[in-house]
């Protein structure tokens, strides 16, 4: 009983907060609802027994990605009401596209049929002792190719971010810790013997 209860709780909150992401007037509230949705999705993963994925979802999406999201949205102080003004005129075309997609989905599900051999293709559920271990074993053996390319993609993303935003400004005063630490007494002051009555 407890499991279904938790399932309905998590899914309900996920769906509701997902709805609020779209309907909230304030974009910051939207992002906060998005975070709530992520968090509840993680809860659903726990119920599925995929605790590793759940935790990674929280660490990566909630703990890092959404923070940056929130950062940006909070910093943007432009009138969001202004931006929304013209949105209404796109409702018809949005409805058409949404309708087509919905129709296709209904089409797909009504035609749900498995070829006999497909059951052989479907991956068997993980049997190793914990899903962290089995994920690791798969990721570094069968899927190492995709894993490595994902690394390259992230590298390119990093290069891209630096190329597009990093600016070498001239005339910036920086702290030079090495110079500070290697400074000797003689570099900074001079000891002068002063005879009385003469001054320096």
């Amino acid at each position: 009983m407890l499991q279904p209860l938790a399932f309905y709780l998590f899914s309900l909150v996920t769906l509701l907060s997902a709805t609020f992401v779209i309907t909230a007037k304030n974009p910051v509230h939207s992002v906060l609802f998005l975070i709530l949705a992520f968090f509840n999705a993680a809860g659903l993963f726990v119920l599925l027994g995929a605790e590793f994925v759940a935790m990674i979802l929280v660490i990566v999406y909630v703990g890092a990605v959404a923070v940056l999201f929130l950062f940006v949205v909070m910093m943007l102080d432009t009138g969001f009401a202004e931006l929304r003004k013209g949105a209404l005129q796109y409702v018809p075309i949005g409805l058409v596209i949404g309708g087509v997609l919905l129709a296709e989905l209904i089409f797909i599900y009504s035609a749900w049929e498995f070829a006999p051999s497909i059951t052989n293709n479907i991956a068997s559920p993980v049997t190793a002792e914990s899903n962290t271990v089995s994920l690791g074993l798969l990721l570094y053996t069968d899927y190492v190719y995709a894993f490595q390319i994902a690394g390259l993609i992230l590298l390119v993303a990093m290069i891209g971010a630096i190329v597009l935003t990093h600016r070498q400004r001239s005339g910036v005063r920086r702290q030079k810790i090495k110079e500070q630490n290697t400074r000797k007494r003689d570099d900074a002051m001079e000891v002068v013997k002063v005879t009385t009555g003469k001054g320096v």
Partner: peptide
Amino acid sequence: GYTGSTNFATIGEALAQQGSMGAII
């Protein structure tokens, strides 16, 4: 989802046995 594999060849075999609407979409 409709062929149970991400491998091109396996997809091809699965579809050769029985095409499905989902795979076409």
